[in-house]
């Protein structure tokens, strides 16, 4: 135990509170702003208390979008984001677990080469390879489609390495016991590896869902049709240079809406993987 000294305790708490305020205040202010009418926001008269028109603002944001610059309603954009984030998260997990399984448990020709190739792609996130990737996606006719939004982001070195690290901690005896029990590679994968990876999958799902949800550059580039906008791109579209032409109440409401699914995923999955962390044992 660290020695208890009142002064250092106080200091620690002050720093923590300062941190909390820095993080929470913008969120709080967005939430407050999303309940005021546009005139008050524009005149800077909203203060720190909730306004009177939450339902109207959220209804407008969800089903109509901004008025002055015409944008897509948030329901459509959230659906796009959801599709993209889910496809990325599920796709990445599926592909990585399979490739990690291959690299760890099979002795095929070019195994180390495959491993290093995967490893090297760590250094090539979308932003670095964006032009060639765009070209490929365009040539495949995937612009303005969910596939175009998600597939180029699915290949993932990080998740593969994570699973690889985890598989290496599964004792060899378990593989051998399976062999003696008569389980082939497929059965071992489904009956043992996948169930044991549940916790890792849940954790990865949270991270990858948020990663997919928050994508900005890539969707901005490959979607030209406004109905394909993701919500992150959509918020940016609602904001125009001249303040007077921006429907700030819609922007604020949309921003709040954009935060909800990641929060929901964290809250829901957290229970699952905390439970998993406590329970699993190899």
């Amino acid at each position: 135990m660290v020695e208890r000294r009142p002064f250092s305790n106080l200091l620690a708490h002050l720093i923590l509170w300062a941190g909390i305020i820095v993080v929470v205040f913008p969120v709080y202010y967005t939430l407050i702003a999303s309940t005021h009418n546009p005139r008050d926001i524009f005149n800077g008269e909203i203060g720190f208390l909730p306004g009177g028109v939450p339902t109207e603002n959220y209804k407008a944001a969800l089903f109509a979008g901004a008025k002055q610059v015409k944008t897509t309603p948030a329901t459509v954009m959230m659906l796009n984001s959801l599709a993209m984030a889910l496809m990325i998260a599920v796709g990445k997990i599926a592909i990585s677990i399979i490739s990690a399984y291959a690299v760890v448990y099979f002795n095929f020709f070019g195994r180390m080469f495959a491993f290093w190739t995967i490893f090297v792609t760590l250094m090539l996130p979308v932003e670095v390879r964006i032009y060639p990737t765009y070209k490929v996606v365009a040539d495949l006719g995937l612009l303005n489609s969910y596939w175009g939004l998600s597939v180029p982001l699915i290949a993932s070195a990080t998740a593969t390495l994570l699973f690889r690290q985890f598989f290496m901690t599964i004792p060899d005896e378990l593989v051998e016991a399976s062999k003696i029990d008569g389980a082939g590679p497929m059965r071992f994968f489904w009956d043992t590896v996948v169930p044991l990876s549940r916790t890792n999958m849940a954790a990865l799902f949270v991270i990858l869902f948020i990663y997919g949800w928050n994508q900005y550059l890539w969707p901005l580039l490959i979607t030209t049709d406004a109905t394909m906008d993701t919500i992150i791109v959509g918020i940016r579209r609602q904001i125009v240079t001249s303040d007077a032409n921006t429907d700030w109440h819609i922007v604020m409401a949309t921003a709040v809406l954009a935060m909800l699914p990641p929060v929901a995923v964290v809250v829901f999955m957290q229970r699952l993987f905390v439970k998993g962390l406590v329970e699993t044992e190899k």
């Binding site: 005896e173 016991a177 009956d191 043992t192 044991l196 044992e281 190899k282």
Partner: peptide, 9 residues
């Protein structure tokens, strides 16, 4: 096996 190698799940 020495470490039993039971399927933990």
């Amino acid at each position: 096996f020495q470490n039993y190698a039971l399927y933990p799940h």
